[in-house]
Every structure is written in C-alpha cells, then in structure tokens.
Amino acid sequence: MGTRDAQDTDWEGVRLHVVSGKGGTGKTTVAAALALALAAGGRKVLLVEVEGRQGIAQIFDLPPLPYEERKIAVAPDGGDVYALAIDPEAAMLDYLEMFYGMKRMGKALTRIGVVDFATTIAPGLRDVLVTGKTSEAVRRRDPRTGTRVYDAVVMDAPPTGRIVRFLNVTQEIAGLARVGPIRHHADLVRGVLTSPETAVHFVTLLEEMPVQETLDGIAELRETKLPVGGIFINMVRPAGLPDAALEAAFQGRFDTAELAAGLKAAGLAERTGDAGPLAEALTKEIAEHARRVELENQERETLASVGTPRYDLPLLPDGADLAGLYELAEALRAQGAA
C-alpha cells in the first residue's frame, strides 16, 4: 500500500466526518476505523466522542478518556489519531473561558447549578456545546504556521433517530435566542455543519430496520439541508457459495446427496459410513444462509436507490478488536472512503 493522493478519495475537501447509525450497527467501530483510514499516510485526525459512553476507549483498549485531546493510535504509513471525549460540562467551562475570559467564574456557576441547568435541563444547549466544541477543533489553526491543526475530525455521533435534531440544534437554539451571544455562537456552529467541509455518514447492517432508519435519516438530512455523506454497510458476510448453489438452496432443492458424497470424501462420515444426517443438517444451514443472502441483496438494492457512495465492511470473526480496526481501515481506503 503506497502513499495515495488524497484527491483519490470520495470525500475530498471534507474535514468533519459525522458518523451516525442505528444502535447495534457498530457506529463507534466504523468511526474509529474511518479515523485510522483518514490519518493513513502521515495525516493528523481527531476522533471525537459526544455521548459520554467511553466507547472509543473500549475499542482501543484504553482506560477512560479524559476531556483532553490525546494521541491514541498510529495509522498505517504514519499518521496520528487523537481522541477527545467531550464532556458537556467541561465544554461549557471552556466556552465561558474562551469567549468571556471567565475561568474562575465557572466554579461558582457549577456550584449554584448553572452548569447543570445548561447541560441537562436547558433544551439543546448541551448539544450546541458539544457540536460547538467539535467545530472549534475543525476550525482550529496553529498560531505559528496558520495551518489547520487537524486534517480531519471524525465524530462518533448520536444514533440515527436523534442525529438530525442533534445537528440541527443550533437552529433550535437560534429559534429561542433571536439575538445575543448564544445565537451568534450557534450560527457559527451551523455554518460549519452545513458547509461542504462536513459530511454526515450512516452505518447500517443489511437488515430491514437499520436500512429503513438510514433512508429516513438521509431524507431528514436533505430536508434540513445538512450534507449527506456515505453509507457504511457493516458486518458484511461473504455469500460463500456460487449463485446457482444459493438459488438451489433458497428454493429447497440443494443437492444433499452430492453434499453427502463430498462429506464422505472429506472423511466426515459417521463410523457407519453414513454422511446423510450431517448432510441433512448442513443443507438446512445452507437454506437459511441462502434466505438471508436473498434478503441482504434486497436491502442492498434499497440502499443503492439513495444514490450516495456505499462501502462494505467485512464481519470480523473475532469481533472488532484493535487488529480488526486496522483491517476495516484498510477496507475503507481500498474503497476510496478515505
């Protein structure tokens, strides 16, 4: 794998990758793999977590991440992945310090419950703090060189059901605060989120519910003028059998006798010399497999109708461990996602 020109990728110019997906689809894993893939070849990428679940730490096998950008992995061919677990309370104190120079005041505000209020009760404020912190990292420049600190930022975002509200929250805030500093801040964040520098990706499985949610999510993004990214199809299992055999199995006319003969040849017959029962059991297994492949093909067609780039990520037999992440990152690069 040589160094590749960044121009080859589907997301040239995108600097904020928001990764959403239905629960259970492996959203955090895909976000982590995408960060590794984007960092490959000597780039610097920040992986951001927004829901306080410490999923990134778990995937990279690290102790819980603090509210601090720190290097967590080295990408293939050089390149660094940094991670940040955004804590809304800390983000709020940051915000007060950055915009109002009120660091010490933060403690007083925490004590009387202002921070609690802002981060848990006040609608949307929590989300605007989190998206605000993320877009600050996207825009941040090195004061000496004037270049951007991160080549890309990947956000492990809330699940599909909440993603549009989460990203659109600046608008919600803007509705509440027609003027004033919060409005100004919200407008700034919205500017980043709706720009061509942002892409909102969806992770899905080839199953009915996650595919439906992906379609709904994309339609909602388009309505709210948020930039639609790619579809990452996770845990893809190879069909494993020629089409004709799958077709036969699907229709219940798989050649069990032929299979029994094969099993015998492989030395898997019972002591009596009979491979029939095993062949029967395996035929059942293959029939289910064929049915599943058929359903997956239907879901694949549905996803194709959306007209946005799609990437396949293989099911990792041993689960998404650290080695698996690099494997997924490689798959993403090979398909031009990064």
Partner: peptide, 21 residues
C-alpha cells in the same frame, strides 16, 4: 476437511459449505 477437499481439487461445493459452516 474443507482444506483437504480443496487441496485434492474435488467437491468444491462441499468445501464451500464446510467453510461457511
């Protein structure tokens, strides 16, 4: 067993079934 069949170049379909299994 799948490996055996593959190296003997016979029963390709059975080998594929065994891999899936």
């Amino acid at each position: 067993a799948a490996e055996d069949l593959e190296s003997n170049g016979e029963h390709a379909l059975t080998a594929a079934v065994l891999r899936l299994h």
